[in-house]
Amino acid sequence: MNYSDSSVILQAKDVIKQYRQYDDVVTAVNRATFEVYDGEFVAVIGASGSGKSTLLHICAGLDRPNSGSITVRGNELTSMGADELSQFRGNYLGMIFQNHNLIPQFTAMENILVPTLMCNKPDTSYEEHLKKLVSTLKIADRLHHLPSELSGGQQQRVAIARALINRPQVVFADEPTGNLDRANADEVLELLLETKRVMNQTLIMVTHDMSIAERADRILVMEDGRLSPYRKSK
């Protein structure tokens, strides 16, 4: 599918992220510039430590770059205050972490509902959506279990449900299938693509699994912090 006619939903411009490690400065992201179109599925691939996750975190507003800008739907994330950025994330962006990052003291249901609570959404606004989500993700019977009582695949589904509950326009997924076996990985990917299609979302996924990346509309390659100007049409 060609998205070049669609509107740009995310624009990264000259993004640099550096860390200080003892006396050295490590450049995790080096002048990354790219655009993502509305409804597009972009996969970012690269070796471990190449800066993929850092770039994803910056794009999702979870981390701040040293310089450069990230613009989502015309709103520059890098110039927003902490509070404003949080609200923007809650309303427009969804994040799926590699290691699920579920709150261990909360049940699956409570974990899923964290974004609604943080954005003060009234119960009525998400009830129907929640039912559909848990049904699609096949976790309806595990909602009252703690994360420690769920399998890795189930935990990742809960994490996906949490990322999607506020109907975000852009979903960021950091190796969502990294901790799963092939069967579970395929199933989770299918679910993500299905919800992306149904909810007309943009999906940006970091992965080192080429078989997953190949299903993306476009692949970006990260190498030593640099994003290669690489485009692969399906």
């Binding site: 709150i103 964290v114 943080m118 954005c119």
Partner: peptide
């Protein structure tokens, strides 16, 4: 996690 999913100062 709260802040990642929209929690800010007010919340």
């Amino acid at each position: 996690i709260y802040i990642s999913f929209g929690g800010g100062f007010h919340t």
